[in-house]
C-alpha cells in the first residue's frame, strides 16, 4: 500500500477550501496551516498563464525530515504516511529546516506539525478532509499500489509533475498539468 495524492491544476481555482477544511478537521490553530495554495503567473498581458497549486507535505519515500529527527518523533507509518508524534517531539525544528517543501510548522503547543494525509480518516476508508471538501474535485487520493485506484488512473491518463524533483525525496504529491 502506498498512499499518494494528485492535484489537477487545470481544475483548481485556488479557493483555499482545502486550507480551511484542514484547519477545522485537524484543529490547526488560526494563523497556521498544514496546506496552502500558491499561484504562479507566466507571460505578459495578454499572453498570460497561471498555475494554481494546493501544496502540503509530500509524504516522501526518502524523507529528510524523518532522517534528521533526533527523537524518532517524525516517522513513517503504513501507506508511506509521514507523521509526527507530538509528545516525542522536542520542537528542535531540524525537520522544518530540512524539508524542501517548507511543509512543517512549529505548533504553539511546542511540537512540530504538518499534513497527516488525515491518517485518522484514511484508516477508516475516508478521504482526507481537503480532498473531500474540494468544490472542483481537483484532488485525487488513494493507493498507488492498486492499479485501479482513482490516483493510479489519474496518473495513467494525464501528464504530471512533482515539485522539487532535484531534491531526490521521491515525493508523493503529483500535479496533473
Amino acid at each position: 500500500m502506498r498512499y499518494a495524492m494528485a492535484i489537477d491544476t487545470r481544475k483548481c481555482v485556488g479557493c483555499s477550501d482545502c486550507v480551511v477544511a484542514c484547519q477545522t478537521e485537524n484543529n490547526v490553530p488560526i494563523g497556521y496551516c498544514r496546506d496552502w495554495v500558491t499561484e504562479t503567473v507566466d507571460g505578459s498581458y495578454p499572453n498570460v498563464e497561471i498555475e494554481l497549486r494546493s501544496e502540503r507535505c509530500n509524504h516522501c519515500d526518502n524523507s529528510p525530515c524523518v532522517r534528521c529527527c533526533p527523537t524518532g518523533a517524525s516517522h513513517i507509518v503504513e501507506g508511506g504516511v509521514v507523521l509526527v508524534t507530538p509528545h516525542k517531539c522536542i520542537g528542535c525544528g531540524a525537520c522544518i529546516e530540512s524539508c524542501p517543501y517548507d511543509a512543517r510548522y512549529s505548533h504553539p503547543e511546542g511540537y512540530v506539525d504538518k499534513c497527516t494525509f488525515c491518517n485518522h480518516r484514511i484508516t477508516k476508508g475516508e478521504k482526507p478532509a481537503c480532498v473531500a471538501v474540494c468544490p472542483t474535485k481537483c484532488m485525487y487520493f488513494g493507493d498507488l499500489d492498486d492499479p485501479n485506484s482513482e490516483i493510479s488512473n489519474a496518473l495513467k491518463n494525464r501528464k504530471h509533475k512533482v515539485l522539487a524533483p532535484e531534491a531526490g525525496t521521491n515525493p508523493h504529491i503529483f500535479y496533473l498539468v
Partner: peptide, 16 residues
Amino acid sequence: RGNASTADPNLAHDGF
C-alpha cells in the same frame, strides 16, 4: 480546543 489536544496529545492528529 485545549481539551481536545491536552487530554491525549495524539488527538491533535486525530481531529475531534
